[in-house]
Amino acid sequence: MSEKTHPLRKYMRPQVKKTTFCPGCGAGIITQALLRAIDELGLTMDDFVFVSGIGCSAWIPSPLFNADTLHTTHGRPIAFASGVKMGLPDKHVIVVSGDGDLSAIGGNHLIHAARRNIDMTVILVNNGIYGMTGGQTAPTTPHGLITITSPYGNAEHEFDISSLVTAAGASYVARWTAYHPRQMTKSIKKGIEKKGFAMIEAITQCPVQFGRVSKQGSAVNMMKNYKENGIRIEKAARMDASELLVKIVEGEFVDCDKPELISSSAAALQGPTGGSN
């Protein structure tokens, strides 16, 4: 009976038997949403290079994925991925990292890659906290929340990362919670197929750190919250700020086509001024 394997096992390194995450961590749901997207697109791992930073979420592709994987430094995966993509323009380059990694220490790389519209897909795993280092306040931590480093309540305000990256110029941006993995897979597929910068913001539970500080507790309780408070962007547009306070806006923030960095550079070189010596 147990010769059967999980249908997505074939994308994992044979010696890696388990994910690195705590029980109930949503990072595993996102891992699956991503692998399912690759599976449904009919692509193979050889079509991809995966780049990640530092944090729990950065361990999604490394060491799990049986592919070229580059596990880098905290905050920098998009910078590394930009060089990888410029060297291998025919491969799909996917960055997977956390909210702290990509929006705090690496926030500048995120918005500039979006502005350049370089062809890559970023899976930003937003658990609202620094998970790996033990529950410190992140730029995504809700205002007022008591955390390890905000013992009197977080006096800062949280980033709306999807709006930020949309404003910075990305071609495709979507946000889904871990309660909506099918929609997430659909968006990841769109992101991979999009010629340009795509980001999927995956809101997810860190039951161990965020669950503890927010007193939301277990993975299931956190997912119940996503189920109850997730709201589609179309509907949210008709609601006012006070109504939206506890809501999590989900859906596609942008889906457009515009010139991509690498193809634009190549075209400029061939163009009327670029061709001459």
Binding site: L70, L88, H112
Partner: peptide, 29 residues
Amino acid sequence: LPKAGGTLLQTEDEISAVCAAIGASWAGL
């Protein structure tokens, strides 16, 4: 460099510059 067949990226800072160069080196360049 582009006319000689290479590619080039003016980055947002030097951190990004060195990281992109390392990434491109792993891409085989």
